[in-house]
Amino acid sequence: MNEITTKILDQIPSNVKFSEEDADVLIRNKDKLLEWEDGLIQGFYDSVFNHDTTRAVFTEGERPAREQTLRDWYQRTLNGPFDDSYWEWQTYVGLVHIKRKVNNAMVTGMWGWIATYLSSKALEEFPQDEALKLVKAVHALQANVTALIVESYLKNMFVAIDKAAGLNEALLGRLVATEIDDMLANAKS
């Protein structure tokens, strides 16, 4: 796995991280989960297009292509495998999102929607035991994928700043450290 992906995933406590068990439960139920695809795509893009700031990300007529992007992502996820290239792809999404100004609030907000949608479907359509395993798998997937997209968004911003302005991440950290106490004091008052 590439360095940035490994470093990000290493930050997540192992009992919370997406596991072999989570992968099994998604893959063994994939036929049912794929039946929910249309609802997922429709609901996701209805939310995104019904809100000014998220709608503003897209160009005129772009919705069908982006729906296809999400479909491809969903299918690739459920078909597995959850190998290095899958996780590296999620890291890459953070970079694509920088280019398209899809910020982290948008991503974490919409992941909340995806997790709620899939969890409610699971609870409606599966026996309780399996449904709870699915809910856990979806939340662990959310933990890994949002961590990768959101953190790589931030880390790649630092890389771009370093490339453009010669300020590496350690130095940026130091600059932040010189201001953080004053900022905290101001935020409290």
């Binding site: 453009a164 302005a165 010669g166 300020l167 130095l171 130091r174 600059l175 450290a177 010189t178």
Partner: peptide
């Protein structure tokens, strides 16, 4: 000191770019 060290290094990095 801490601020001058940080902004001095930053100025040097930026100067190089």
């Amino acid at each position: 000191g801490a601020r001058i060290a940080a902004v001095g290094a930053a100025a040097s990095g930026l100067g190089n770019r």
